[in-house]
Amino acid sequence: MSHFAFVEQALVARELENLRRARTCIDSSDGRQITIGGKRYLNFASNDYLGIGSKTEIANLNQNRIGASASALVTGYTQEHCALESLLCKTLGYEAALLCNSGFSANVGVIKALFSDAKVSTNSTVFQDKLNHASLLDGSLDSKAKLERFNHNDVNHLRNRLEKSKSENKLIVTEGIFSMDGDSAKLEEIAQLAAKHNAWLMVDDAHAFGVLGKHGLGSVETVRPNILIITFGKAVGGQGACILGSKSFIDYLLQFNREYIYSTAMSPILASLNLKQVERVLNASEQREKLKSNIEYFTRGARELALPLLDSKSPIQPIVLGDAEATLVAQKELRDQGIWLTAIRPPTVPFNTARLRITITSEHTRKDIDTLLMELKKIV
């Protein structure tokens, strides 16, 4: 067997299992439409939930420094970064914040940094929802702490695991809105469990920030976790992420978070853009109401057509078909009818739960949603 023959073998195996991934180069997109190869589709795959991602005013940023030129601990921490962190701390009620280049690096970096010390980690356990994002699970796998996974959104199972744990340091990790199922974590109950068992609570609020709450603050309008992760690539329509917590916790990350310490800081232009976009999100009450109305219209129509929806009240509306090949066929048939959405297959989701991941935005019209429902009924 030749060197690295496993590369081709792995690709062939993925192809045979209908699990091989590929990229699609797009011409343009917004919260309603996407153009690919000159053809326009209705876009039901975007995370631009409020439709503001394609309405940015880049020309008015008054900023010409493209790159930060160094890590934040060298010369990469600028006034633009300070302003964005300050706004988020003030808005979300935290003492300190740390900007990251992606939500993935934020999630991995936090958990790995907290439990990098072998002596501390021998007496530490991370409790994770089984459907948490890969970045959260990778953070635990890269750390030295014990990992215990509880059944999805099962507070009783989590309680049982906490009661049996002898660890001194306990961290509970969950998403606010789960990225593949679209349902919300039972944060109030989980927060009560965390307080009772002297555990910290960490919430990845990537899909909730901008969407949930009267002012779009996400999960923290009802629960304030010890560690909050928000991202700018969904409802904010920007790029990157932010970790929020106590001053001592953020200072700890400055000492031990390798992803942050050894990465070039976020672009100052991007920090300025993210700040303007966050301000727009906080004032996007009209878009949030339209989004809520569109979600209710879609779910009501889907139930009337007996489409197999999961229990989601968020913009993420999956239809689980189970078989990966059947899901790919459904995706292709929808695209042939001018509808763009994504077939999500293992290992992104558990085996036998391949699905069409539909995302609703405030930009969709009732006619768009009617068209989607009509085609789903034919195919599903």
Rank of each mutant, 00 (worst) to 15 (best):
G210Y: 08
G210H: 05
V211W: 03
L212M: 15
G213P: 04
K214A: 11
H215W: 15
H215F: 15
H215N: 15
G216D: 12
G216K: 13
G218E: 04
G218A: 10
G218Y: 04
S219E: 14
V220C: 14
E221K: 10
E221V: 07
V223R: 12
V223T: 06
R224C: 04
R224D: 03
I227L: 11
I229E: 00
I229T: 03
I230K: 02
I230C: 09
T231W: 06
T231I: 05
K234Y: 05
K234C: 14
A235W: 08
V236E: 10
Q239E: 14
G240M: 11
G240W: 01
A241Y: 00
A241D: 00
L244E: 08
G245Q: 01
G245Y: 08
G245D: 01
S246F: 04
K247M: 10
K247G: 05
K247S: 13
S248W: 07
F249D: 07
I250T: 09
D251N: 12
Y252Q: 03
Y252C: 05
Y252T: 11
Y252N: 02
L253Y: 09
L253N: 08
R258T: 05
R258F: 05
R258E: 10
R258W: 03
E259I: 00
E259V: 02
Y260G: 00
I261D: 04
I261P: 01
Y262I: 01
Y262W: 09
Y262D: 06
T264I: 14
T264F: 09
